[in-house]
Write a protein that binds this DNA or RNA. Structure first.
Lengths: 230, 230
DNA sequence: ACCTGAACACCGTTCAAGT
DNA sequence: ACCTGAACACCGTTCAAGT
């Protein structure tokens, strides 16, 4: 095990790639959650001083930005054999899964996706599909916003749920039924809800509405053309 | 100004109510943002040691939980003269506005609404409206989840946008058009998008779809009964 | 260019002690 | 019950110095 002939130069001068450090950071996130990621802990895990990390990243902020770029799935090429809404659904779920499987990363997604260039590629892909669906420019932009917001909510809520599992077995079942008659009577259904299915339910809901906006089917009272009711 | 006859007992023994401390905490959030709220800063603002705050709240976590309870709007009474979807839209927007106007509070909303009893009241109110709309139990639960996730995403994204205004005048306009042909051509529309309108667009989209699920209008290919497509 | 070590200005939380 | 003061175990970041 302790052979001679070191492949790396000897002495206290290990070198890392940014990617190795990001891997280690993701490991910390997976083990200790979003609050567990600190430069000092990352440094000690790779056997270096906290100061040394500033040779690789300008700041903790820059490291977090790089983490988001790394976790965000790259959009697949457009597939002419699949409908726009099927491709859209698949890709949105892929992003969802990526950030939900990387537990501590959801907070980073929430904090920095607006300025992320990986997220720009996501926007480009989704917009392309929405335009392909036949949506007008304003509709496509608004629909992109709707999908982004819904996706963000799914990721944030599910990540929080995993990081902080039910304090009681079932909070809802224990609520006073006088104050919460409906919620209380739904306690079992509420506890049984499955995250993956719930996420898909809302996504399907939004996509269906968008298909009607796109004119793919009749949609008697679309909210789109009606304007805001006051 | 410096009169005698103090109304509070003299000496270094000021007392606060929890509410006064929460007010002060909200002020700090408004001034310094979510990262600016610390027990030490709150303590110094009210002229006390950080340790003293532990006489009012068990921990910073407990203080944050109390902040969420305080910011969350209380559901209004049911109004038989207004449709379920109008009441639902109005209330969801009220929550949205409450957390977006209280800038640093969005992160707290994201982190703790799952365990918030104020949020339980929100759930009870929304579920009541959804049941009143005629949704089945599973549909009502799923719809509640969809609305919660969408609302969460709206609050998180908008709060982040306010806390961290566009780094450039318009990030999107400056993207390489070879890589971002669609997004680039939408740069103006993208920059002009208005948060309030965008939020309402998606909410109307979801509500419209729910109205069809509820059987209020024909909805040829509802995602609900179809099951998951694979 | 990469790294150490010490320091600075912060955190939340706890202990021991005062009134 | 409420509060102080000191301490503990952390943070991100920076300075000065080494190779």
């Amino acid at each position: 095990m302790s052979s001679q002939a070191p492949r790396t130069p000897p002495g206290p001068r290990p070198r890392f790639s940014q990617d190795e450090l990001l891997d280690e950071a993701l490991t910390i996130l997976a083990i200790d959650g979003p609050d567990g990621l600190s430069l000092r802990r990352l440094a000690s895990r790779v056997g270096v001083t906290a100061r040394a990390l500033y040779c690789y990243f300008d700041s903790k902020d820059a490291l977090e930005a790089a983490l988001v770029e790394r976790v965000m799935p790259v959009p697949p090429p457009l597939d002419p054999d699949r409908s726009w809404h099927e491709q859209l659904r698949t890709y949105v779920m892929r992003i969802h899964d990526a950030f939900v499987d990387q537990p501590g990363a959801a907070r980073l997604f929430a904090a920095r996706s607006a300025r992320s260039t990986a997220m720009d590629h996501v926007r480009e892909y989704l917009l392309t599909l929405l335009v392909q669906a036949g949506l007008s420019h304003p509709d496509a932009i608004a629909a992109l916003g709707t999908l982004s917001r819904y996706l963000m909510g799914c990721v944030v809520i599910e990540a929080e749920r995993r990081a902080n599992p039910d304090p009681d077995i079932n909070r809802i079942a224990v609520l006073p039924s006088a104050e919460f008659p409906v919620l209380g009577s739904f306690a079992d259904e509420y506890a049984a809800r499955n995250s993956e299915e719930s996420t898909r339910y809302g996504l399907d809901l939004i996509v269906s509405a968008l298909r009607h906006v796109a004119g793919e089917a009749t949609y008697p009272d679309s909210p789109i053309k009606r304007g805001r009711r006051s």
